[in-house]
Simulated assay, not measured.
Amino acid sequence: MARAGPGRREAAEARGRRAETLAALWLRAKGYRILDRRVRLTVGEIDIIARKGKLLAFIEVKARADFTIGANAVTSPSWQRINRAAASWTARREKLQACDWRFDLVVIRPMRRPLHLIDQWRPDFAPSGR
């Protein structure tokens, strides 16, 4: 397996940014309000945070040529990091603490509409107040 050089890493980063932009546009068209994107915290990262009514959706975006590969690209430890980041992000926003949470995945494939997989993962237990 060839190592990813600087050119490949930059191309992958650009693909990821484009996929996240397309996912955010798709979610907005579905009635979601985008609250934040590309959230980077010490405990984890979140691609998109969106709200629809009293629901906060923490959304991971994967750009893959094949749906199955994209749908299976996020591991349980990755979701757990996203959950920790969601808790940290939400803790700083008092008005959002009463919202319900959901963890979604958007798969972006070439020349196809995005696929929004709702409620893709659930933590083993819900923190109090959720």
Rank of each mutant, 00 (worst) to 15 (best):
M1Q: 12
A2C: 02
A2E: 06
G5Y: 08
P6K: 14
R8S: 14
R9A: 09
A11V: 09
A11R: 15
A11L: 13
E13V: 14
A14D: 10
R15N: 14
G16C: 00
R17G: 03
R18Q: 11
R18N: 09
A19S: 10
L22K: 08
L25W: 11
W26C: 11
R28D: 07
A29H: 12
A29G: 07
K30S: 10
K30E: 15
G31F: 02
R33T: 14
L35Y: 13
L35K: 05
D36M: 00
R40H: 14
G44M: 09
G44W: 09
E45M: 07
I46N: 09
D47C: 00
D47E: 03
D47S: 02
I48D: 02
I48T: 01
I49K: 04
I49N: 09
I49L: 00
I49R: 03
A50K: 10
A50P: 11
K52G: 07
K54N: 15
K54R: 15
L55K: 07
F58V: 00
I59K: 08
I59G: 00
E60I: 03
R64H: 15
R64S: 15
R64W: 14
R64E: 12
R64Q: 09
A65G: 14
D66I: 13
D66P: 07
I69P: 00
G70M: 06
G70E: 04
G70N: 07
V74G: 08
T75Q: 06
S76F: 05
S76P: 05
P77M: 08
S78M: 14
Q80L: 13
Q80T: 10
R81I: 02
I82Y: 01
I82G: 07
I82W: 02
N83W: 13
N83E: 08
R84Q: 08
R84I: 04
R84C: 10
R84V: 01
R84G: 00
R84W: 06
A87M: 12
A87R: 11
S88F: 12
W89L: 09
W89A: 15
T90H: 13
T90Q: 15
R92Y: 04
R92H: 13
R92P: 03
E94K: 13
E94L: 10
L96A: 04
Q97N: 00
Q97G: 01
A98F: 03
C99E: 11
D100Y: 13
W101F: 01
W101K: 08
W101Q: 05
R102V: 01
R102Q: 05
R102D: 01
V106S: 03
V106A: 07
V106K: 00
V106F: 05
I108T: 08
I108W: 03
R109P: 06
M111P: 00
M111F: 14
M111A: 15
R112I: 09
R113F: 09
R113I: 11
P114H: 05
P114F: 07
P114S: 06
L115H: 12
L115W: 08
H116L: 03
L117A: 10
L117C: 11
D119K: 10
R122M: 09
P123D: 12
F125S: 13
F125T: 13
P127S: 02
R130I: 14
R130H: 13
